[in-house]
């Protein structure tokens, strides 16, 4: 047996947030309307850096809508109207001088269904760095593509077929390719909208493992319908219901001893 004593305990997933984690994004009094429908009601939340934050809640509770506010994806919906502020490192992302395209390079997104471009594996990952002009030459781009695929834990699986179409990969691989694509622009925040809901358990486990590794460098916000997944991968959990942020706390607290009866009813499967 080793007689070495571990002096530092890493913050476990599914536990609580690192008390020293810095605040990365701040929502203040955010309201979202789709036409007359009031989808998000006065939500205020601090999202921490180097932390996985899970948004949970029943369908239609507003969790995906709120997630999409964080990189202005709702801008693409004509009837959507947003009030309040959302700050990234202290700057309101809805300011007039913020370019949404640049913003989305800093706040990347991965969707529920893997959606690789109908291009080669290489070009999928290279797409972001190219359009944002992040690289000067092919050699630099090669480095980014390799490191992104490595961080997405799929370099060894695809290094010999980078010129083949990304759409030819399995579902789980496609999703990891989309994660590689999202991290290729070196974002600071990664938004994931049910990233594993279309995947089998093995592919899901790989994505969860990946999320845990990516947490070292990114602030990650994940929307999930799987309570167990939220409990496993996140350190902070926000429970949304009817457009309201009902409870936001350390994941361990939410899943073992939530404060609000609505949270308790939802996570234990008693929502009537």
């Amino acid at each position: 047996m080793s007689d070495q004593v571990e002096t530092t305990t890493p913050v476990a997933s599914g536990g609580g947030a690192d008390p020293n984690a810095a605040v990365k994004m701040v929502g203040k009094g955010v309201n979202v309307y789709y036409g007359d429908a009031h989808a998000i009601k006065d939500v205020s939340i601090d999202i921490l850096d180097k932390t996985v934050t899970a948004f949970i809640g029943p369908s239609g509770c507003g969790k995906s809508t709120f997630l999409r506010c964080l990189n202005r994806m709702n801008d693409t919906i004509d009837v959507a109207r947003i009030t309040g502020t959302i700050e990234l490192d202290g700057q309101n992302i809805y300011d007039k001088n913020i370019d949404p395209v640049q913003l989305r390079a800093r706040v990347g997104m991965v969707f529920q269904k893997p959606n690789p471009f109908p291009k080669s594996i290489y070009d999928n990952v290279a797409y972001g760095p190219r359009i944002h002009g992040l690289v000067a030459n092919k050699a630099d781009l090669d480095v980014i593509v390799e490191s992104s695929l490595r961080r997405a834990a799929m370099w060894d699986e695809v290094k010999d077929r980078l010129d083949q179409p990304g759409t030819g990969l399995s579902g789980g691989q496609q999703q990891r390719l989309c994660i590689a694509r999202a991290i290729a622009t070196a974002p600071e925040v990664l938004l994931m909208d049910e990233p594993a809901s279309a995947l089998d358990p093995i592919a899901t486990a790989k994505i969860e493992e990946l999320i845990d590794e990516l947490r070292e460098n990114y602030s990650i916000v994940i929307v999930t319908h799987s309570m167990q997944q939220a409990a496993r991968v996140s350190q902070k959990t926000a429970f949304f219901h009817l457009g309201i942020l009902v409870e936001y706390d350390d994941t361990s607290k939410i899943f073992t001893n939530p404060t609000d009866q609505r949270t308790q009813d939802y996570i234990t499967g008693r929502f009537g």
Partner: peptide, 9 residues
């Protein structure tokens, strides 16, 4: 069932 909260306790 993977009980949570009060059910888990």
């Amino acid at each position: 069932r993977q009980p949570l909260a009060q059910d888990l306790r």
